[in-house]
Write a protein that binds this DNA or RNA. Structure first.
Lengths: 230, 230
DNA sequence: ATAATAGTGTCTGTGAGACATTATGTA
DNA sequence: TACATAATGTCTCACAGACACTATTAT
């Protein structure tokens, strides 16, 4: 039945929130052809022999094996398939969006974070159709940030409103009123998704910040019944 | 490179709005093993030899070749992959949701519509993991019906408010206030997605119904900034 | 005291929800 | 006239948006 088979894999768009509130993308230096030596999305091929229990498991394996990273959130974005995207021939790739905590550390120098904007604006080229895959994953994040709490997965479990604002603004690509976000966090508290720790964080100057805790009650983000942004 | 390949295909969950306002699912009698003779989702295998330009093109081909149907709307839902879903071994399937106009006609008797509820409630069994794929596609439709105009693709291009109500209620699985829907249709008119034809449709009794026209301005549905349902 | 940052309060606008009321046709 | 169905109007409520104002810390 080999005549009915095709080259398939998963590619991971793993994002982290940088110090300056910008989104960063995880890249890995490819060890093998094609495009050996170039910086690309981490990914793995899937086939019966790799003994992945499922496609989602393959996505987790890609992050775990290549970067020793366990994402705070992982979701499938889309699957692309055509004859042009891989020089080896007709191929499929299932794209996953991974959100990482901000304190993620990289193990070795074949791994690297670059500013997401560098890729989206074409200043950092990527092999295959990876730049396009990144754009689709970023759109998914921006789309869901409008009506869910997904950006909170970019933060440590204990976070401040200011950090949450940065996560939402980075995800959406535009400013959000802090009062709006406070209202949403209040709503999440009522459903057990966020709780007040009672602790405070002291910034260099100014009033101490309340420390909140993110307590996801199910896969994915909390769903609001309205959109931010007008 | 055959050792890195895997069995892959697309499966289509094609839905139509029935006379009594219920959603119906398109099934096809399988011609080949495995599960030859059983009713299943229409689908095709993808591989380099089938000369599909892309995965989306393969989805269109599945509907076109097997049922001579061009859907009003087609969108990718998800890709599932594991070792158990196909007796031939580890396999991938990309699931598409197709919305059909209500006047769709079937060409031959290897095609058939069944009530979606029959499948969701397990009274109509399907081979492979097709019942689960159907459930995921139905969830996608219900989820999007909350904040987009997607159910309108289940109607003829010219439709009445009553028909639109039926489409939304079937998609959501619950009642919608007609005033809410009218408000949303009004909003769509302002953006060119719906227009008043000026014509009327006369039901057996009662006041004539205004005939509206659905004019999609881009792929997918019109996106509202609030949720129906509280 | 002053600057910096966090947090609250107020007012407006939009659109869903519920329900009553009016409009327009057939039998 | 009675009935059936479509369409509109009214009132309430939740929540985003904008922005003013208060609170709590460091220097």
């Amino acid at each position: 039945m080999a005549s009915a088979e095709v080259l398939a894999g998963v590619d991971i768009v793993a994002l982290r929130l940088g110090e300056e509130g910008e989104l960063q993308l995880l890249l890995i230096r490819r060890a093998q052809a094609p495009f050996a030596g170039e910086w690309a999305l981490p990914g793995v091929l899937v086939n019966g022999r790799s003994a992945d229990a499922s496609l989602d498991a393959a996505a987790e394996r890609a992050l775990q094996d290549k970067a020793r990273i366990a994402p705070a959130h992982l979701e499938q974005v889309t699957t692309v398939g055509n004859a042009d995207r891989d020089p080896r021939g007709w191929s499929l790739s299932t794209v996953y969006l991974a959100l990482l905590a901000p304190d993620i550390a990289l193990q070795h120098d074949d791994l690297r974070f670059v500013a997401l904007a560098e890729v989206l604006q074409g200043r950092q080229a990527l092999p295959f159709d990876h730049a396009q895959l990144v754009a689709q994953a970023a759109e998914r994040l921006a789309g869901k940030a409008v009506y869910t709490s997904l950006p909170l997965y970019l933060l440590a479990p204990r976070f401040t409103v200011t950090e949450a604002l940065a996560a939402f603004q980075a995800s959406l690509g535009q400013a959000v009123q802090h009062t709006t976000l406070r209202g949403r966090l209040e709503k999440m508290k009522q459903h057990g998704w966020v709780l007040d720790t009672g602790d405070k964080n002291q910034p260099r100057m100014g009033r101490p910040q309340a420390l909140l805790e993110h307590r996801p009650q199910q896969r994915g983000g909390f769903v609001f019944d309205r959109s931010v942004l007008s």
